[in-house]
Design a protein around this nucleic acid. Structure first.
Lengths: 223, 223
DNA sequence: CGTATGCTTAAACATCTGTTTTAATCAAGT
DNA sequence: ACTTGATTAAAACAGATGTTTAAGCATACG
């Protein structure tokens, strides 16, 4: 008894898409281990067996969710490329990079699920994490690292650049993964539009540090 | 056939203690939801039923683990108090505080479990988290905030102090919760004794930022 | 019309889960 | 030696879990 129109050409496989959407939410809520395939199927309005049929299993569905969410999040908040826009001042590049990172982590749009999936992966790594880091995060890190290197000057060695890059990233990601903590210690933080104000602080803090470190390096090399 | 000495008066309930120790490790590894009572019992060298018998169930055991670990953490690592040691230079206090934070997060001693339990709570909060924040984190935050306030000078308002304090904390906790990421991007980071080197960098980075911010504030107020 | 293909469905499957039960064991008190 | 009270052990239990199976259904095509 076919009740609905078969949807024809809108989406190639509507059930698979519905499963991916439902799985994104439930994986973000519960994590891979605690998510139940029956819950995912129910929310997608599909049968449990559809998961094995379309993706091969729960783990494979999870990998596909991670792949898609990461791609969507990055294309919506692209990282400024240091090499192609090398004419720009590195200060502006750093500000833009910090804004992009905070946007990815805190923006409340549909792709905010990726941030929660990422936090879960870091707290409880699955085999999908390494691939995710190498495919998605490493290029982002490289771009930011290039900006930091330009701000630190030629006297900075690779290790300092690396640690300073971590110092910048850590300040951004803190407001994502430590959100329950920040909510208790500073409840007003996430009101209104938190990204611009937080980005301004982190940029100011980091630029102050990077400039001073550069000065210290150049003074030391002059002596 | 009693093979071992009955342990007499050393610990009142050796099985319960063994269960708590094993549960601390396994809860830290897998989290509450994915930890298996049979694994806990096996590691403790006890029977599964002992969990229900001594604690009432898996959840109650988890609450007791969290309570004990938090208590141990507090008494073992007191944070240097800014008010009682106000004679010291704030630069040294900041360095000590950063070293204490990193030590707690990265130290490999028996109480390192608390850090991993905390990361899990932040990623997947349970009702126990709020109490944990108020008991463990808030006092540490207050102490560090006082140090940062002294470094920023009297021109800094409460919000700047708060955000700068978060900037310091975030750099420390980053190496805990983002460890899988750091391990891929910078594999040598956790070799040897990572705490002194990382503490030196974070202290240098933060002091450079705080001093420059203070200068900027005082220049602005002079004009 | 008849067949084939792709997708969906309900049921079945084997395994695992936290908890409970029932009996055995042990040290101490009398 | 016997009892008692507390603790432990093996098995059983009821329910949940990811996956597979076999049948059902609509569409495409000869």
């Amino acid at each position: 008894m076919p009740s609905a129109v078969p949807d024809s050409g809108t989406t190639p496989e509507p059930t698979a898409e519905a499963l991916l959407a439902a799985a994104s939410e439930i994986f973000a809520e519960k994590g891979l281990g605690l998510a139940r395939v029956r819950d995912i199927a129910t929310r997608a309005g599909a049968n449990v067996a559809a998961i094995s049929y379309h993706f091969g299993g729960k783990q494979a569905l999870y990998r596909e969710v991670l792949r898609r969410q990461a791609r969507a999040r990055i294309s919506r908040y692209p990282m400024p490329d240091a090499t192609s826009s090398s004419t720009q001042e590195p200060e502006r590049l750093l500000a833009a990079a910090i804004q992009a990172l905070l946007g990815r982590f805190l923006a409340d749009d549909g792709s905010a699920l990726m941030a929660r999936l990422m936090v879960r992966e870091l707290a409880a790594p699955t085999p999908a994490l390494t691939a995710l880091i190498e495919d998605v995060i490493h290029p982002q890190y490289q771009a930011l690292s290039g900006i930091v290197a330009r701000l630190l000057g030629t006297q900075a060695d690779a290790q300092l650049v690396q640690r300073a890059t971590f110092s910048v990233i850590s300040q951004c990601i803190f407001y994502l993964f430590a959100r329950p903590l920040v909510t208790v210690l500073a409840p007003q933080t996430y009101d209104d539009q938190p990204v611009p104000a937080l980005a301004a602080h982190i940029t100011g803090f980091s630029l102050a540090a990077l400039r001073t470190l550069r000065m210290q390096l150049e003074e030391a090399s002059d002596a």
